[in-house]
Amino acid sequence: MFDFLKKKLNDFTQRLSQKAGTQQLEAIKIPDPQKPPQEKKKGLKEESPARRLEADVGVAKKVAGALTGSIELTQKELEPFLDELELALLEGDVEQETAQALTKELQMQLAGQKIPSKENVNSFLKEKVRAALEKIMQTRQVNLFDEMERKKPFVILVMGPNGAGKTTTIAKLTHYLQAKGKKAILASADTFRAGSIEQLEVHAQKLNARLVKHRYGADPAAVAFDAVKAANAERADAVLIDCAGRQETNKNLMEELKKIVRVAKPDLKIYVGEAYTGQALLHQAQTLEKEVGIDAFILTKIDTDAKGGTAISLLHQLKKPILFVGTGQGYGDLKPFTPTFILDNILG
């Protein structure tokens, strides 16, 4: 999924290293003190004497740098590159604040830094980008099976906006747990959407898993409660609760969700979101985090050529791990996910 961001970040490091390279060359030429280099001055209508002085100092520094074999990039020189990078990040669905945080982090890492000129500037820059990404994406790691050791049955609530893929994800999770010899019971707590119970029923049948269901219009919390009870009786390892999709702006549905949480007391609350959701995903997730709390994410539909920026923003803003990504329509299309996955895919 990260092809787009990868390309853009590559452009960024390459063009910046070119720029650094040309500056090294320029700096070696003794500049005319009356006439500082032109290119940096684009966009400025008029030069104040102070600016020229600053520029002259900059040039002098660079000469020194060239002599000692290192080069320094000033904030001003970095700015157009970082502005462009920010736009590219936005184009890759990275949310605005996260894009700003990332460029700011890069600026801190780069501005005034001595770049050893003998070294490959490009790889130096890449290293810096990796460090910046790593820093903004730091979260707690969650290992599902370690967590499951804690309690039996382990209750997992799957929630998210309409059409994000909750029911399909539950089927995949069931399959994933079964493959590791764990027994899961499914709870059809989406009693609102047409066809939702039948949908989960079909999956339960195919996967040979037990399904707890009520009728449409029943209290979802009651379904969840019954499922937990059934799991206790049958000594199942996990309960997977499917609840109705909801928009975070709907107060009543948020209350309903809170009730499910109160009654079923889930050990892990997973938010399922679409990888190609734009800037809104963060807002949705933040509201849910505030109202009921989120422990981890699963991003679905990454096989649609989603740009992946969503993942970066989620990690940065909510500091919650992404457990899995959905990669297709089969039961096996659920892949464990780590930040390293992003880093390797973007920086390759």
Partner: peptide, 13 residues
Amino acid sequence: TFRAGAVDQLKQV
């Protein structure tokens, strides 16, 4: 005809 429950959903809708 692919997604589980899709026909039921449409019928109910």
